[in-house]
Simulated assay, not measured.
Amino acid sequence: MKVGFIGTGSMGGLLIDAFLSSGALAPGEVLAANRSQDRLLQLQKRHPGISICSNGETAAKSDILFICVKPLQFKQLTDEIATYLRSDQIVVSITSPVQLYHLESALPSKIAKVIPSITHCVNSGTSLCIFGSRLHNKDRLLLLQLLSFIGVPEEIPESHTRIASDFSSCGPAFLSYFLERWIEAAVESTGIDEALISRLAGEMLLGTGKLLTEGSFTPQELQERVAVRGGITAEALNHLRSSLEGVFERLITTTHGKYDEDVEKLDELFGHHSGIAQSPLDR
C-alpha cells in the first residue's frame, strides 16, 4: 500500500513521523510532496526510503492520500491534482473547515476527513474520523486500522467536527496554557524549581487522563474525590469557579466563529452558495 502526503509541514510531518515510528507504515510505502524542497530533504534524511514526488505524482501513485495544507490552499490544490486521481483511491483531508461536500464536488475519489492531534507524537490521543458517502465499509476499516497505530480513532458526525476538535486537537494547547500560567505563578510565588514543577504538572496531567479514560471517573467525580469539603482544594476550586465564569462558553464561541468564517470562504472558492456545516451555536 502506498500512502501519500501533500503538505509536510507541522501536522503533515507529524503524521509521517508517527506512522513510521509506530510501525504503521514502512518508509518505502510513503510518498511526500511539499512546496519547500528543503523540508522534504529534511524529512527524507530522517526517514531514508520515503519517496519525494510532485503533487501530481503523489496523487497518482497513492492508495490513500492525505492532504495537509491550509484551508484556503485546498481549491488550488484540488484543481491541480483532480485529473491524477481515480475513483478507487481514498483522499483524506486533515483540515477541519474543509467539508466533505467541497472535496466530493471537486475530486473523483473516495473522501474522508481526519482531524489528528499533536498527541500522536507519543502514539496517544484521538483522531477524529468523518467519512464521505463514497467510502465502503472496507475503506473505513482500512483507515481506522491505520490510525489505530498512532492513537484512538473515533468516528463522529461532520456537524460535531469543530467542538470535538476543540478537545482532541486544540485541547493540548489550551491545557498547556493553563499549566504554563500556573507554573509561572508557582515559581514566582514560592521559588520552586521550574523544571521540577513542570514534571509534576506533566505527570499529574497524564495520571488525570488515565483516571478519566481507564479509571471510570467523570470530571465531577474526580473533583468530589479530591476536594474534601472545607479543605484547601475545595477552597481553591470555589475560586476557580468564580474566576472562570463564562470563559469556556467564550472559548467555544471563538473557535466556532473562526471555523464558520473559514467554511464560508471555502464555499466561495468551491462555488457553493451556502454550506451545510451550520454551527450548533447558530441553531
Rank of each mutant, 00 (worst) to 15 (best):
T8D: 08
L15H: 09
S21G: 06
S22T: 06
G28F: 02
G28Q: 11
L31T: 01
A32C: 10
Q42I: 02
Q42G: 01
P48S: 12
G49E: 00
I50C: 05
I50R: 05
S51A: 15
S54F: 02
N55E: 03
G56A: 13
T58D: 11
I64M: 03
L65R: 08
C68Q: 06
Q73A: 15
Q76C: 03
I81K: 08
T83G: 07
R86Q: 14
S87K: 15
S87A: 15
S87H: 12
D88A: 06
V92N: 06
V98M: 01
Y101V: 11
Y101W: 08
H102W: 07
L103R: 12
S109N: 05
I118L: 15
H120L: 11
N123G: 00
G125D: 08
I130L: 13
F131M: 02
D139C: 00
R140G: 05
L141K: 13
F149G: 00
P153D: 00
E158H: 04
H160C: 12
F174H: 11
Y177N: 12
Y177Q: 14
G191T: 04
I192F: 08
D193N: 15
E194R: 15
A195G: 02
S198N: 10
S198D: 05
E203Y: 06
L205K: 07
L206K: 15
G215D: 11
P219I: 06
Q220P: 00
L222R: 08
Q223T: 12
E224D: 15
A227I: 06
R229N: 03
I232M: 14
A234N: 00
A236E: 09
A236I: 13
H239L: 14
R241D: 12
S242G: 02
V247P: 07
R250Y: 04
R250D: 15
T255F: 04
T255M: 08
H256E: 15
K258M: 09
V263Y: 04
E264P: 07
L266F: 10
L269C: 06
L269G: 02
F270W: 08
S274D: 08
A277S: 14
P280Q: 02
L281A: 12
